[in-house]
Amino acid sequence: MKRRTFLTTALVGTGALALGVNVYSPPAVNINPALDNPHRLLFSVLLPVILDGAFPTVESHRLAAQTRTLDAIEQTISVLPQDQREELMQLLELLEQRLGLLLLTGNMTPLMMRNPQELAALLERWRGHYLDMMVTAYGGLRDLIMASYYSCPEHWHHLHYDKPKYFES
């Protein structure tokens, strides 16, 4: 997907989310099917910030890494215990609503409309926040994304690591 299409998608998607419309219509907005899920869209704007420096720089490789990581995030969420999954969903839903955004970020601007520097500044505020709830929100998103990205063997080349191949014929 070209970057311009992605941004358009993000803007349209964010508007829909902020209005409480959680259903996307891929043909109407030319959305990447890999992002056909509201939380995937939210994560897709956080990944380049949290994984800056680890994500490949070549566009096609970066998109492939993003799709793999989004899949891995879904998989990770699916194995979380119910209490943790519910907390995470609550956080994600707040981040997709204007009032929730105002509460958590002090600003109603949807995350998808903020540039990477603004998103990094937001994460930094959460990271050092005096309220444990905000630090926990930061830690939860960070750990989920890190664990999901580094769970994929395709992303280990950055570490110069691979698992032993004794048992592979």
Binding site: L51, G53, M146, Y150, W156, H158, L159, Y161
Partner: peptide, 19 residues
């Protein structure tokens, strides 16, 4: 990989450099 990525701190370039 997961153990170290999640039991270290920060994100973005500083974390990628550590990894």
């Amino acid at each position: 990989p997961i153990l170290i990525a999640s039991k270290t701190l920060g994100y973005g370039k500083s974390h990628a450099e550590l990894m």
